[in-house]
Computed example of a mutant assay.
Amino acid sequence: MSKFSDNIVFLRGKKNMTQKELSDILILTRSRYVAYEYGRTEPPIEVLIRISKYYNISIDLLVTVDIRKYPVDKLVNLPDNKILLPVVVDTEGNKFIEIVPQKASMGYLNGFSDPEYIESLPRIQLPFLGHGIFRGFMADGDSMPPFADGTCVIGEYVEQLSDLKTGKEYMFITNDGYTFKTFSKKNKTSVTVAADNTFYDSYDIALKDIVQIWRYVRGILPQDYKPYYLPDQFKLKNLVDEAKRSISELENGIRKLNRE
């Protein structure tokens, strides 16, 4: 049997319906529907659409994922007919958190809705996080300041842009990779974000480029991490701005003298 036939048998069982009852709802003969469950034939697209709408599950999910492994009511639907699979649990119901290595960050953009890819990622357990869908992302070099190289940044999945809170930190997964930034505001076609380093100006991320957003909840530091302290960045920025103003005034004075 195919994944599709296994899935529709499973879904019909959850509805506690007979083959005849379901075939009537789908406007099919019982024999034709039974052929789909037994995998003897594949349904045409119009029937796939009917089944998809009835169960409120995407066609992509019906034909490519063994949904018996996942709690269907907790699957998160994403744009472009993609899905976000819930975290895997062990036999005792304890959650696993998938960790995305930095070297796999670009592969994550293509595979985040692929069960086989997600299942291939390394996992950890952090029982104290409670409810929610969590995922970890590894910092590499200076990829996610202020986190040091080798830090594992744990985020909780954000379903709606309206859930973003001003001044809170998030992992923004975009078409270019992932970045750790503080959310400033939502615009009509973008979100404005800021880096922790005040030397860098805020900038906008186009909504069309955002793949996922994860709210920062924990950071796991590398074994040999030693904290270091920078001078007060706010004071440094003020000094740099004052120096820029002084230079500008000096240049204006020189131009004035030259004109005289």
Rank of each mutant, 00 (worst) to 15 (best):
M1F: 04
M1C: 11
K3L: 13
D6W: 09
I8H: 03
I8W: 00
F10P: 07
L11R: 02
T18F: 00
S23Q: 01
I25K: 13
Y36D: 01
E37H: 08
Y38N: 14
Y38Q: 10
E42Y: 13
P44L: 08
R50S: 15
Y54M: 12
S58C: 08
K69P: 07
D73N: 09
V76L: 12
N77M: 10
P79H: 02
N81F: 10
K82A: 05
L85P: 05
G93L: 04
I97Q: 01
E98M: 08
I99H: 01
P101H: 09
K103I: 11
N110W: 05
R123Y: 04
I124N: 03
Q125K: 11
Q125I: 03
L129Y: 00
G136F: 00
A139C: 08
P146N: 06
G150Q: 06
I154M: 04
G155I: 02
Y157V: 05
G167F: 05
K168L: 07
T174C: 05
T192K: 11
I205C: 05
K208M: 04
I213M: 02
W214T: 06
Y216V: 11
R218Y: 14
G219A: 15
P227K: 13
F234M: 07
A243F: 07
E249Y: 10
E251T: 10
N252F: 09
L257F: 11
L257P: 06
N258A: 13
E260F: 15
